[in-house]
């Protein structure tokens, strides 16, 4: 009887905790939709902003954000894949594996402002890339690298040993093994990692605020060296400095679009992961 009461109480506490989490999430989502919804219109989505964000839309900020994310993904993907392959297929030493793995997890937990600071000093100042699209892409690439690398590595480690051994038994060398056995069976990890990494990067402001983007007066970058407009900076500046309610509504509208991009990325990552994983394991 006593045990039953304890179990029911524990279940009740868990339900309250879960409910609180879900409620908080719904409150945030609800308020963004409630406050940002009125800003949404065809013009808002496809027009350039004007009058320091008080008028116009967020077209260039949306495209700029996507450009920054795409660049970051293209830079970090080969590095993450290479690191994951090195750790899983080429390194025999358990110590090297452990050290690199710890390093990658530490990188994942690093405050993003540090990425911005170190990234700016290294890329922007030392490599002289300045406040630019390139600096932003490089910093975000380093930032999403751990997420991507861990995801790919887990997918590679999850490949059934039977496939590896069959490849080996046919005389496939390392490169052929990677090309025909490892990569086709770990696609799902790569896709998931990229999308989850991008979802993280999409919400990132601190790392790119002083390194890649400026608030006004810019359209799309014409070269790697130009700054790029982003939704994150747009929201931050409007939320801090806007004095009229129309500008604040536009900030909420931009937040809603950013949330929508993140939602799409995460939904796609789960959908693709399940689908590709099923195909790889068939």
């Amino acid at each position: 009887m006593k045990r039953e009461v304890v179990e029911k109480s524990a279940l009740g506490v868990l339900a309250i905790l879960t409910g609180t989490g879900v409620l908080l999430l719904l409150l945030i989502l609800g308020s963004v939709i409630w406050k940002g919804g009125p800003a949404l219109s065809w013009e808002f989505l496809f027009e350039a902003s004007s009058d320091f964000g008080n008028a116009g839309g967020i077209y260039y900020q949306t495209v700029g954000t996507l450009l920054l994310m795409l660049g970051a993904a293209l830079i970090s993907m080969p590095i993450a894949l290479g690191t994951a392959l090195y750790l899983t297929e080429y390194t025999q030493s358990e110590t090297v594996k452990k050290v690199l793995r710890n390093l990658i997890y530490s990188l994942n937990a690093m405050p993003t402002i540090l990425f911005g600071l170190v990234g700016y000093l290294f890329f922007g100042v030392f490599l002289n890339t300045g406040v630019s699209w390139l600096t932003g892409m490089l910093i975000l690439a380093v930032m999403i690298l751990p997420t991507l690398q861990v995801s790919i590595q887990e997918a590679i480690e999850g490949i059934p040993e039977k496939y590896r051994e069959t490849g080996m038994s046919l005389g496939l060398d390392h490169l052929a093994q990677v090309r025909s056995v490892i990569i086709p069976h770990s696609w799902h990890g790569m896709i998931t990692g990229v999308l989850l990494g991008l979802a993280r990067a999409a919400g990132e402001t601190a790392a790119i605020m002083f390194t890649a983007t400026t608030f006004s007066g810019i359209l799309l970058p014409q070269s790697w060296a130009d700054p790029v407009p982003t939704l994150q900076t747009h929201i931050l500046v409007l939320a801090q400095d806007a004095v009229n309610s129309a500008a604040l509504t536009k900030a909420w509208g931009a937040a809603l679009i950013l949330l929508f991009i993140v939602f799409i990325l995460i939904s796609f990552s789960f959908l693709l992961r399940e689908r590709l994983k099923m195909e790889a394991e068939l």
């Binding site: 039977k162 496939y163 051994e165 069959t166 080996m168 038994s169 046919l170 005389g171 496939l172 060398d173 056995v181 195909e279 790889a280 394991e281 068939l282």
Partner: peptide, 19 residues
């Protein structure tokens, strides 16, 4: 070793076919 494995093939206990 790759040439060796090509010359000495292996069939495993459970059938392994690639997807």
């Amino acid at each position: 070793v790759y040439q060796l494995r090509r010359r000495v093939g292996m069939v495993f206990q459970k059938p392994v076919v690639f997807p």
